[in-house]
């Protein structure tokens, strides 16, 4: 079920100095939908994220959140509506899992340094939702990469934002942890949140996302339901190499047409 439109990007262009990174991007992000963003390195995905999250000031085009331009929101107001899930990393200080998730309450805190009951409840729920309750008092830096990524997702839930931006959450994870993170994000989107996720594996987008957008050289090449737009033609255009798709047991797969070994054999 698609919810209402949360964020709409309209003809957004962005340049660092003379180098134009984004060309007239238009995109709608809706609640209850998981959208994958696919594109080669340097295609402008990160810049698009930074514009949508208010890290970069938009010079041309419009980004609207709930009908209002995001430039009119204060960082605090924006954070109460839009959450950012960065790629997992180790902070310089050894915060516990609980402390990391508590930081998600920043936009909802009052003036007092202590957290309120509502804050603690939201943190407890977020931890429970991602099965992290048992790890709450562990050192965040000592967890596995996959667990750390889940903690960051939990932090976004504690933030109670309607829209989540996930920046390559699975890039540094092993096979199983990638699937765990994807399943968590997918089930969160099923509950009505909107999410957009940057990812380098087209298979994952095909398997887990409702919608997809492909971006290359700062332009949107295709946009729509993931199963419809992720085609052989699109991927070959995106990555400039022959690619094959196949169906197996009702699932679609993408694989390179020539592996190095086949090339040697030929």
């Amino acid at each position: 079920m698609a919810g209402k439109t949360l964020m709409s990007v309209h003809e957004l262009s962005f340049a660092y100095g003379r180098r134009t990174i984004l060309h007239e991007i238009s995109l709608n992000l809706r609640g209850g939908r998981l959208r994958g963003l696919l594109g080669p390195n340097g295609s402008g995905k990160t810049t698009l994220f930074k514009c949508c999250l208010g890290f970069l000031k938009v010079a041309r085009g419009q980004i609207e959140l709930e009908g209002r331009s995001i430039a009119e929101y204060s960082p605090r107001e924006l954070a109460a509506r839009v959450a950012y899930v960065p790629q997992e990393h180790r902070p310089a200080f050894p915060y516990t899992v609980r402390e990391m998730v508590e930081m998600g309450r920043t936009p909802h805190r009052g003036a007092i340094p202590a957290l309120s009951k509502a804050d603690h409840r939201a943190v407890d729920q977020a931890l429970a939702r991602l099965n992290l309750t048992a790890l709450a008092n562990e050192n965040y830096n000592h967890l596995s990469g996959g667990q750390r990524q889940l903690v960051l997702v939990a932090r976004a839930l504690a933030q109670e934002a309607a829209l989540l931006f996930l920046d390559e959450p699975t890039s540094s994870l092993d096979f199983s942890n990638q699937l765990i993170v994807w399943e968590a994000v997918q089930s969160i989107a099923r509950e009505g949140l909107g999410a957009i996720i940057c990812c380098h594996d087209p298979n994952h987008i095909l398997w887990f996302c409702d919608e997809a957008a492909a971006i290359k050289d700062g332009r949107i090449l295709a946009e729509g339901p993931a199963r419809e737009i992720i085609t052989r033609g699109l991927l070959e255009e995106l990555y400039d190499r022959p690619i094959q798709t196949a169906d197996l047991n009702g699932r679609s797969f993408i694989y390179p047409l020539t592996s190095p070994r086949e090339a040697n054999d030929a």
Binding site: L53, F55, P75, E77, L78, Y84, M103, G104, T106
Partner: peptide, 20 residues
């Protein structure tokens, strides 16, 4: 103190959590 905690995660995360 709380702002310091959030700032110590880095500028982008601090910004996305609602601080300037």
């Amino acid at each position: 103190g709380w702002h310091l905690n959030v700032l110590s995660l880095g500028d982008e995360e601090a910004r996305s959590l609602g601080l300037n």
